[in-house]
Write a protein that binds this DNA or RNA. Structure first.
Lengths: 199, 199
DNA sequence: GGATTTACTTGACACTGTCAAGTTATTTGG
DNA sequence: CCAAATAACTTGACAGTGTCAAGTAAATCC
């Protein structure tokens, strides 16, 4: 009856993954409001309390969804980085494009990911995978201050802020005369680490 | 029974304001999860359906709360700006402090304000009051690009991104070695408009 | 192949937003 | 000053939600 491959052990095989997938589909199709434990269960075709066994509660499911979101998110940025030229500034802009692309395709998921509504499951290494994308491209630049990762945090904040503000309906740079600015329009001039290496 | 001044027309006087106030208290005390139409009504002492007459639905109430939030928010930044010295860079940092101060006192409210979960009521001029705070302090700096308000958007994105990322529990610069960076640590060196006016 | 453990289902409960209809106070009109 | 009209609520109901306790079916273990 379902469109699966062919096995269907009636203990469903891997419900956990199926529920996360359903959740990601729901949030994309109907937005955050359409994402609920019961809706996920219904879409997968199991009873309303089935998710409890795998996620404990709603937070658990949201966390798993957000976690998957972060993986896709990192992928989007890494892809963009790989396509970029060797020019340090262009590489930053390319990553920002990856960021923006993901945000445009998954607005509500991004919101969920950064909402603080989710506390992540035990997976310990969460912050790095996305953050690390920036480390190498930021290396050529002179640090903004002696705070560790000052350049990375600055770039991250800049693109995150821009995207998040642009997302809002009633309160956003998108409502400015001239329309929605892009990352390249607001990236300040950054000094390179070694003055000799300018090209 | 209530702690009001002394009149109590039993049609309550001004329920609308009271509900918004209750909502702001609830979100501060119990977080976003503790904020509901019924909880607001109960706190004010009216029936569960009373808010409908003033706000139509939940979105209406959330919008009104967020709107009030934006007013306090602007106030916080304006206050901070007024205390700042004349140094252009210090003025930007002061505003960021106002931003951060509000965020620290009202984390969930800030989240609500920028969440996209609220669509604002008919008040037309929403974006300016907070945004305008930045215009004058950004004036001394050379624009980042020829996009209108490039400097303002850059500063806004930077501080907004920093604050929002720092707010998250599982995914934030706060988890970096060296702890949570402040705005001053990630504000790049900006050129002043007129080289003569450096001091 | 019986016992145990895992993976679900069923049913219930408290809570939520929303709506329709009723009730009470305030305002209005004469 | 009092009746009529309207605004400001209340009451009751409904569907939907997350969560929990108890039951059942399937897989695994010994």
């Amino acid at each position: 009856m379902t469109a699966s491959t062919d096995k269907k052990p009636h203990h469903h095989g891997d419900l956990r993954r199926a529920l996360v997938k359903a959740g990601m589909e729901l949030i994309r199709e109907k937005g955050r409001a359409g994402l609920s434990l019961r809706a996920c269960a219904a879409r997968v075709g199991v009873s309303h309390a089935a998710p409890k066994h795998h996620f404990g509660n709603l937070s658990g499911l949201l966390g798993a969804i957000a976690l998957q979101g972060f993986e896709d998110f990192s992928k989007s940025m890494i892809e963009a980085r790989e396509k970029a030229s060797g020019n340090p500034r262009d590489r930053l802009i390319a990553i920002a494009h990856g960021y923006e692309a993901f945000a445009e395709e998954n607005p509500d998921l991004l919101q969920l990911m950064f909402s603080g509504e989710v506390t992540f499951p035990d997976t310990p290494r969460l912050q790095p995978p996305a953050f690390d994308v920036l480390v190498e491209p930021c290396a050529p630049f002179e640090p903004v201050s002696d705070t560790p990762y000052s350049t990375e945090i600055m770039i991250w904040s800049l693109v995150h802020g821009l995207v998040m503000l642009g997302r809002g309906r009633g309160f956003s740079p998108a409502k400015l005369p001239g329309g929605r600015p892009s990352f390249a329009d607001i990236l300040p001039d950054l000094k390179l680490r070694d003055p000799e290496s300018r090209n």
